[in-house]
Amino acid sequence: MASILFLVIAAIGLATALGTVLSRNLVRAGLYLVAFFFAIACLFVLLEAEFLAAIQVLVYIGAVAILLMFGIMLTRDTLGDDTTAIPVGWMIPGLFGGLCVFTVLAVGINNSIAPSGWTPWSGTTSRPSIIKQESDPEPAWVAERREAVNDMGRVIGVELMTRYVVAFELAGLLLTAALVGAIALAHRADSAPKPPRSVEQAAGSGPGADPPSEAGEPVASSLSP
């Protein structure tokens, strides 16, 4: 049952990935990408990582796909629509290269090469159960992981605050840097100062309206070197 479900989800995922890559219409490619993200979320559910599936839907579908849609909307090509088409002469080498990469990866997956002393991981078909079995004894990590899977949100929070706190702080730093960088990139660097809205307003407002504009100017000039 789970195998059939996996096959259906994988087929949908691969078809939508191909649609994203090969679709001529960019908005259609973005919608295919949303479907691909959703298929990945379904795979996370099949892997019993439901919290990660929720994160996937929220971050990827809710934020990244919408951001890409805004990007598509704002960069309409003014010189014709030929940038979204794939040239026929490139199609064959590109698909051949992709097929070669997939072949190499599949050989690596299929070969069941393992370091000495380790069991080959390639043929693994059973995962440790997340339901407690009373009969047979289990190693400690199975019980630990079962508790983590069954209470994933809390355990992820605890792990992020204890074991992975450095990585957590670095991710926060990266997000802050990305935010500042995106603002600095998208900020329109106008060297010419803005004219006042109207002459009467500038003349008749008196000294009361001056300090906000005075305070606003140095910030704008320092952001646009």
Binding site: M1, G13, L43, L105, N110, W121, S122, T125, S126
Partner: peptide, 21 residues
């Protein structure tokens, strides 16, 4: 009747190849 680990790896490899293309 669990899903083999291979299937996930094959799916990921195929998605990776498609993205690379």
């Amino acid at each position: 009747n669990d899903i083999p680990l291979n299937w996930f790896l094959y799916f990921a490899a195929a998605s990776f190849a498609i993205g690379l293309v």
